[in-house]
Design a protein around this nucleic acid. Structure first.
Length: 155
DNA sequence: GCCAACGTTGGC
DNA sequence: GCCAACGTTGGC
């Protein structure tokens, strides 16, 4: 079982939106970055745990937990020319983009802010904290995960 | 809204 | 395969 961090802009889709979704589950479509795609297609597995991160907002922070609730599937939004995620270069013969379902697990009573993560000596190797990291799907080590959970509990 | 950092594209 | 130009991300 592995740990991941996934970003979402709360104005677009927040942890509250996830919690209120049908079955508290949503298909994570629209990943259009190859490294993130590779994680989704090749490494992320059913039951893995996701740190849900709010980006491009007032207080960027890890705001809760989700879990991977499906195998990787072809992202058909890439085939839909009315979708904002449309990609003319993806087709059913050679699908370029993939998705997984994520299911709500928990919302933190107090989020763990990016500022807090950056200031924590135990988390300097996090992909998120590493200078310039922009990946929207990124691996988290078990130690990093445990440390972050300690922070939320201590709050 | 600015802009640094990064990813992608495409000419050569 | 290099790399300049361009587009995007996302913190501030």
């Amino acid at each position: 079982m592995n740990y991941w961090l996934m970003k979402s802009e709360p104005d677009d889709f927040s942890i509250d939106n996830l919690q209120m979704s049908e079955q508290q589950t949503v298909a994570w479509q629209g990943i259009r970055n190859y490294q993130a795609r590779n994680y989704i297609r090749d490494q992320i597995a059913l039951g893995d745990v996701v740190l849900f991160y709010h980006s491009s907002c007032k207080v960027p922070a890890i705001v809760g937990l989700a879990k991977i609730s499906s195998d990787a599937q072809i992202d058909i939004s890439a085939f839909d020319n009315r979708s904002p995620y449309y990609d003319v270069k993806s087709n059913t013969n050679t699908p370029r983009w993939w998705q997984v379902d994520i299911q709500f697990m928990a919302k933190f009573s107090k989020p763990v802010s990016l500022k807090q993560l950056k200031a924590d000596l135990a988390l300097q190797d996090m992909v998120l904290v590493a200078k310039g990291a922009r990946l929207s799907v990124q691996p988290v080590t078990p130690l990093q995960y445990q440390h972050i959970m300690q922070l939320t509990i201590l709050k």
